[in-house]
Amino acid sequence: MSSMFWHDWAGLVGVALVLVAFFLLQAHKLSGQGYTYQVMNLLGAFGILLSLIFGMFNLSAFVQELAWFLISVYGIVRGVRARKAVVPPAV
């Protein structure tokens, strides 16, 4: 394992984040609409993308992780907009 590069570690951390987020979702410990779940998926996909870009490139895995990343961005933006819509202005 000593011959692993930084991008290999980024990929492993990314995989761990995505899997832990999914497990916590299934265990009802996280909400699919919550920031924690979305950010874990975003950072996980980013780590995996780094490992694919700087390591052994795989087009199908890259497309999947890019989609995962973009869907996470969408979920975060949607959540921010929804929270702003329900917060009454301060008087």
Score class of each variant (00 low, 15 high):
residue 1 M to A: 11
residue 1 M to R: 11
residue 2 S to K: 11
residue 2 S to F: 14
residue 3 S to Q: 15
residue 4 M to A: 12
residue 4 M to T: 12
residue 4 M to S: 12
residue 4 M to P: 00
residue 4 M to W: 14
residue 4 M to F: 13
residue 5 F to K: 11
residue 9 W to M: 09
residue 9 W to N: 06
residue 10 A to H: 03
residue 10 A to C: 14
residue 10 A to N: 06
residue 10 A to I: 00
residue 11 G to L: 01
residue 13 V to C: 08
residue 13 V to R: 02
residue 15 V to D: 04
residue 16 A to F: 14
residue 16 A to I: 11
residue 16 A to P: 05
residue 17 L to G: 00
residue 18 V to K: 03
residue 18 V to F: 03
residue 19 L to G: 05
residue 19 L to Y: 07
residue 19 L to W: 12
residue 19 L to C: 10
residue 19 L to M: 13
residue 20 V to M: 12
residue 20 V to Q: 04
residue 21 A to C: 11
residue 21 A to K: 01
residue 22 F to T: 14
residue 22 F to M: 13
residue 22 F to Y: 13
residue 22 F to R: 10
residue 23 F to A: 14
residue 23 F to W: 15
residue 24 L to S: 07
residue 25 L to M: 12
residue 25 L to A: 10
residue 25 L to R: 07
residue 27 A to D: 10
residue 27 A to V: 08
residue 28 H to F: 11
residue 28 H to S: 14
residue 28 H to G: 08
residue 28 H to I: 13
residue 28 H to T: 13
residue 28 H to K: 15
residue 28 H to A: 14
residue 29 K to Y: 11
residue 29 K to F: 08
residue 32 G to K: 04
residue 32 G to D: 06
residue 32 G to W: 02
residue 33 Q to R: 14
residue 33 Q to M: 13
residue 33 Q to T: 14
residue 34 G to K: 01
residue 34 G to Q: 03
residue 34 G to I: 02
residue 35 Y to K: 09
residue 36 T to F: 11
residue 36 T to W: 07
residue 38 Q to Y: 02
residue 39 V to E: 02
residue 39 V to N: 08
residue 41 N to D: 04
residue 41 N to S: 07
residue 43 L to H: 01
residue 43 L to F: 03
residue 43 L to V: 02
residue 45 A to R: 00
residue 46 F to N: 06
residue 46 F to T: 09
residue 46 F to I: 03
residue 48 I to A: 00
residue 48 I to Q: 00
residue 48 I to M: 00
residue 48 I to G: 00
residue 50 L to T: 03
residue 51 S to L: 05
residue 51 S to D: 12
residue 52 L to E: 00
residue 52 L to C: 05
residue 53 I to D: 07
residue 54 F to Q: 05
residue 54 F to N: 03
residue 55 G to P: 02
residue 55 G to A: 10
residue 55 G to E: 05
residue 55 G to R: 02
residue 56 M to Q: 09
residue 56 M to T: 15
residue 56 M to S: 15
residue 57 F to H: 08
residue 57 F to E: 04
residue 57 F to Y: 09
residue 57 F to R: 07
residue 57 F to N: 06
residue 58 N to G: 07
residue 58 N to T: 09
residue 58 N to K: 10
residue 59 L to E: 13
residue 63 V to E: 07
residue 64 Q to H: 09
residue 64 Q to N: 08
residue 65 E to C: 05
residue 65 E to Y: 12
residue 66 L to N: 04
residue 66 L to M: 09
residue 66 L to F: 14
residue 66 L to H: 02
residue 67 A to R: 03
residue 69 F to C: 04
residue 69 F to D: 00
residue 70 L to A: 14
residue 72 S to V: 01
residue 73 V to L: 14
residue 73 V to F: 04
residue 73 V to E: 01
residue 75 G to D: 03
residue 75 G to I: 01
residue 76 I to K: 02
residue 76 I to E: 03
residue 77 V to G: 05
residue 77 V to P: 02
residue 77 V to H: 08
residue 77 V to M: 08
residue 78 R to W: 15
residue 78 R to G: 06
residue 79 G to Q: 07
residue 80 V to S: 11
residue 81 R to F: 12
residue 82 A to S: 10
residue 82 A to P: 03
residue 83 R to C: 04
residue 84 K to F: 13
residue 84 K to L: 15
residue 85 A to T: 07
residue 86 V to N: 14
residue 86 V to H: 10
residue 86 V to C: 11
residue 86 V to T: 15
residue 87 V to P: 04
residue 87 V to C: 11
residue 87 V to M: 15
residue 87 V to G: 09
residue 88 P to Q: 14
residue 89 P to L: 13
residue 90 A to I: 10
residue 90 A to M: 10
residue 91 V to I: 09
